[in-house]
Simulated assay, not measured.
Amino acid sequence: MAFTSESVKVFLSVVDGGSFSAAARKLGRVPSAVNMAVSQLEAELDMLLFDRSTRKAIPTAAARALEPQARQVASQLNLLDAHALQLHQGLESRLILAMAPELQTGAWSRPLSTLAKEFPTLEIEVRSASQSEAVRMLHEGSVQLALVFERPGIDERETFLEAGSQLLVAVASPDHPAAAGKNSPLNEEQLVNIRQIIVATGEPTGSDPRVVLSRRVWLSDSYLATLDMVQAGLGWAYLPQPLVQPLIATGVLTEVVFDNMASQMRLWVDIVWVKNRPLGLGASRYLSLMREIVRSGPSRF
């Protein structure tokens, strides 16, 4: 095999430096050693790579033809070295984040572009799960981080980062019974019998209990599917304010008016992980990037 990781490095150093002496300085070697390495490579390839008729080392046409692939090989070797070092430092092969369906928009995705640049070999997986399911997967160890609404109690096995908040608005189509509350606010007895569409998976209890107000519930794991059902007059729902505000402004949707509480609800969002399970390099970096986002100003989901 003519080309090795070492010969590729020497070859490119001479191409970039323009002479054996410049390549030697870059590699920390004497020029005669660089010249010998190149001569050995040329002998194995049976072709001339550099014109030595002057004090400079001028790449031949063959060298220029080989250069692009040599640079690709060097890049891959550098990536391999970096990956090996990151694994040694604790980089996980895959970072898995579970989140409640209600939180699939917002600041949580902003750190991913930085992670992709800093750890190009790190695989990222985002799983949609109900709040209770996301926490269960966290404790089972199948995910490293869970993005959930703030819970009333504290689990001593967990630690968390407050990542922002989400403003939910109760909305219905203008001709839906829930929309009649604009003139006559809905009381609790009326509300429990009007169908509510909840963004959750599995069971309504998988969602934040503050969001579930009706006995008659339909479930969806997608904001867009929920929005379609609300617009079709199939029920009312709590949906993110940025999603529904343009539709309210144009009269496509209307806010549901309650007689004992506001139609808008702000819920705080936490990123949770398990205390006694060390986080990998990717998860730790993700949290540090989220902390920077939180410090820079209010984060909205």
Results as ranks from 00 to 15, higher is better:
residue 5 S to P: 11
residue 6 E to D: 15
residue 9 K to T: 14
residue 9 K to L: 13
residue 10 V to C: 12
residue 11 F to W: 13
residue 12 L to F: 02
residue 12 L to D: 03
residue 18 G to V: 10
residue 21 S to R: 15
residue 22 A to F: 04
residue 24 A to W: 08
residue 28 G to Y: 10
residue 30 V to I: 12
residue 31 P to H: 09
residue 35 N to K: 14
residue 39 S to T: 15
residue 40 Q to F: 05
residue 42 E to Q: 15
residue 43 A to H: 15
residue 49 L to K: 03
residue 51 D to H: 14
residue 54 T to W: 10
residue 62 A to S: 14
residue 62 A to M: 11
residue 65 A to W: 02
residue 66 L to K: 04
residue 66 L to Q: 03
residue 70 A to C: 15
residue 72 Q to N: 13
residue 76 Q to V: 08
residue 78 N to L: 14
residue 78 N to G: 05
residue 80 L to Y: 10
residue 81 D to S: 12
residue 84 A to Y: 04
residue 89 Q to Y: 01
residue 91 L to T: 06
residue 93 S to E: 09
residue 95 L to Y: 11
residue 96 I to H: 06
residue 96 I to D: 03
residue 101 P to K: 10
residue 104 Q to Y: 06
residue 106 G to S: 04
residue 107 A to T: 13
residue 109 S to F: 12
residue 112 L to I: 12
residue 112 L to P: 01
residue 113 S to E: 11
residue 124 I to F: 10
residue 125 E to M: 09
residue 127 R to C: 02
residue 134 A to E: 04
residue 138 L to R: 10
residue 142 S to E: 13
residue 145 L to A: 03
residue 145 L to W: 04
residue 148 V to Y: 06
residue 149 F to G: 09
residue 151 R to G: 02
residue 154 I to R: 15
residue 155 D to V: 10
residue 157 R to H: 10
residue 162 E to Q: 12
residue 166 Q to I: 15
residue 167 L to H: 11
residue 169 V to C: 10
residue 172 A to M: 06
residue 172 A to H: 07
residue 174 P to W: 10
residue 181 G to M: 13
residue 187 N to K: 04
residue 189 E to G: 00
residue 189 E to F: 03
residue 190 Q to C: 00
residue 191 L to Q: 08
residue 193 N to C: 00
residue 195 R to K: 13
residue 195 R to A: 03
residue 199 V to P: 04
residue 200 A to L: 01
residue 200 A to C: 10
residue 201 T to R: 09
residue 203 E to K: 08
residue 205 T to W: 06
residue 206 G to N: 03
residue 210 R to T: 03
residue 212 V to W: 04
residue 215 R to F: 00
residue 216 R to F: 07
residue 219 L to C: 02
residue 221 D to C: 10
residue 222 S to E: 05
residue 222 S to W: 03
residue 223 Y to R: 09
residue 224 L to Q: 12
residue 227 L to V: 05
residue 228 D to R: 14
residue 229 M to D: 05
residue 230 V to C: 07
residue 230 V to N: 06
residue 234 L to D: 11
residue 234 L to C: 10
residue 235 G to M: 08
residue 237 A to V: 02
residue 242 P to E: 09
residue 244 V to Q: 02
residue 245 Q to P: 00
residue 249 A to I: 00
residue 257 V to E: 05
residue 258 F to I: 04
residue 259 D to S: 15
residue 260 N to Y: 13
residue 260 N to K: 09
residue 264 Q to N: 11
residue 267 L to A: 01
residue 268 W to D: 12
residue 269 V to G: 07
residue 270 D to P: 00
residue 271 I to F: 14
residue 277 R to F: 08
residue 278 P to S: 07
residue 279 L to Y: 06
residue 282 G to T: 09
residue 283 A to W: 11
residue 291 R to S: 14
residue 293 I to Y: 05
residue 296 S to W: 06
residue 297 G to R: 09
residue 300 R to N: 04
